[in-house]
Amino acid sequence: MIAHAVFFYLFSFIAIVSAIMVTAARNTVHSVFFLILDFISISCLFIMIGAEFLGMIMLIVYVGAVAVLFLFVVMMLNVAQQKNQWFGSSKSSSHIPVGLLVSLIIFFELIIVIGGWKYKPDLLDSKTIIISETTTNTHSLGNVLYTDYIHLFQLSGMILLVAMIGAIVLTFRQREGLKRQSYISQISREKKDGVQVVEVPNNKGVKIDV
């Protein structure tokens, strides 16, 4: 049990410190790396409470895919060289009220959620949450997700699909004069399409229609 507590505090400490460093780091790329560290320690915490499926999905989706895209954007936009001026500069203080407002709202939302949990203990006993010793939590998650919540699950999938198509439509542009390779036209090309044998009369030349 002591080892459990040690690891819990270790991961939480890393998570909190790296969350602070995301905003405090001077270099934007460093911020993204701290964000990745944060994700990893959060997924370790997930695994520690026995939610191994969530922890792994967190690693695969957020660290393996989303954070790579963050890194891409940050590196490609070349904001890496711009110094982060949130700290130590007086003219940036205009951001602070907005930030405070957002964080206050999140804080109150958290209080409401945790308060609801604290004062309504039977929230955990509702019929869909069955924590069984015999089935793995991947199985129990699937059992709930694909039976009771199938419509919500499908709906969230549709929303993601719409968002994806929207993003593609917004950024797609047909460029002019782009040469594309078409395997079918290359394979179906035959000798008679490409080569033409012509009798060339002496001193007159020949006109080939192209």
Binding site: F53, M56, I57, L59, G64, V68, L71, T136
Partner: peptide, 20 residues
């Protein structure tokens, strides 16, 4: 572990960070 294949997949998807 119960999620062995997901673990393998997750770790191999982390491999990109060393390179980047």
């Amino acid at each position: 572990i119960n999620v062995g294949i997901l673990y393998l997949f997750a770790v191999s998807s982390l491999g990109v960070y060393g390179i980047i």
